[in-house]
């Protein structure tokens, strides 16, 4: 069953087209990843699904209902985890969850139980009477999620739910996403972290400049660039000293991604250039710690399709 259907959806802000004729279908039970750099149009697309922004052209339906004609009904199906933590610092965790759940029509005992269940699910039961002021970033993120799931929505939209938190909290959230999906919720998940998307998403759409430029499962997307190979060189020195342009001049090299101590080089598979790449590092007095040949991952796919890193 199709849960979300976007048809030729367009949204403009003045002269800027934030979303450009996007068509997507998200099926029941999916964890659908929406990937793209800042300004790609992800949040605009999400805000149109949630009814926060109006649609200029095209249509969006949720469970077959048009978000413009049946705004209140479609909103009631959705639970949103906003990118910015949107909770009240002067209400306790329980009061926060109860307030947001009450907006979806929950009352009395049912409301209390649902709120406690959501806090239990996000591991915040013990903090139910505490104010978020004293919480760590990870705990606030979890409360942000609890506020979105207490009313048991059929569709949960998570907009970068793991930004700026510790690995333990991130892991907790990722497990929660999987569990929510197992319990029957369809999830739209946006993230800057490729490994998260690779780990949990069943299907992924890559957006850039307001358009969907690739759509498929993770292996399908990786196959799009199976004619390319990736070499990761780890050096002792800071990788910022590496001259990207010199590496790009080596025959076959298509992309160079410079990390802290690593340089990730994507090349056309038919060209043998590993010796030339290593020669560059030796010639320029870099101490090579490790050289690893990898199959293209989502990051490489993204880089190849958009010409830039996800966090650019």
């Amino acid at each position: 069953m199709t849960i979300v259907k976007m048809e030729q959806v367009t949204k403009k802000f003045g002269d800027v087209t934030a979303v450009d004729k996007v068509s997507l279908e998200i099926e029941e039970g999916e964890i659908f990843g929406l990937l793209g750099p800042n300004g790609a149009g992800k949040s605009t697309a999400i805000n149109m699904i949630t009814g926060l922004l109006t649609i200029d052209r095209g249509s969006i339906s949720i469970f077959g209902k048009d978000v413009r004609k049946d705004k209140m009904t479609t909103k009631s199906y959705v639970g949103i985890v906003p990118q910015d933590i949107a909770i009240y610092e002067d209400l306790t965790s329980l009061e926060n969850v109860k307030f947001f759940a009450s907006l979806y029509g929950l009352r009395g005992k049912m409301l209390e139980e649902a709120a406690l269940e959501a806090l239990e699910f996000t591991g915040l039961s013990e903090k139910k009477n505490q104010f978020p002021k004293s919480f760590s970033g990870g705990m606030k993120r979890r409360l942000n999620i609890a506020c979105a799931i207490a009313h048991k929505p059929k569709l949960i939209i998570m907009d970068e739910p793991t930004v700026g938190i510790d690995p333990q909290s991130r892991n907790h959230i990722l497990q929660s996403v999987k569990k929510l999906n197992e319990l029957g919720s369809t999830i739209i998940y946006t993230s800057h972290y490729m490994e998260e998307v690779e780990e949990i998403c069943t299907r992924i759409a890559i957006m850039d400049h307001g358009k969907v430029i690739a759509l498929g499962t993770c292996p399908e997307l990786e196959n799009m660039i199976n004619d390319r190979g990736v070499v990761v060189v780890t050096i002792n020195e800071p990788a910022s000293k590496v001259d990207e342009n010199s590496l790009r001049e080596i025959p076959g090299v298509e992309n160079v991604d410079i990390g802290e101590n690593t340089v990730k080089i994507t090349s056309a598979k038919e060209v043998t250039n590993l010796d030339k790449i290593i020669q560059y590092f030796i010639k320029n007095s870099f101490t090579i710690k490790n050289v690893e040949s990898k199959t293209p991952d989502l990051e490489t796919v993204f880089l190849s399709l958009t010409g830039r890193k996800l966090r650019d």
């Binding site: 926060l52 705004k71 009904t73 909103k75 009631s76 906003p82 949107a86 909770i87 947001f100 907006l103």
Partner: peptide, 14 residues
């Protein structure tokens, strides 16, 4: 400022 207003309006609230 706290983005809670937008969140409230994502719920079925006029």
């Amino acid at each position: 400022d706290a983005k809670t207003g937008a969140r409230v309006l994502c719920a079925p609230v006029q």
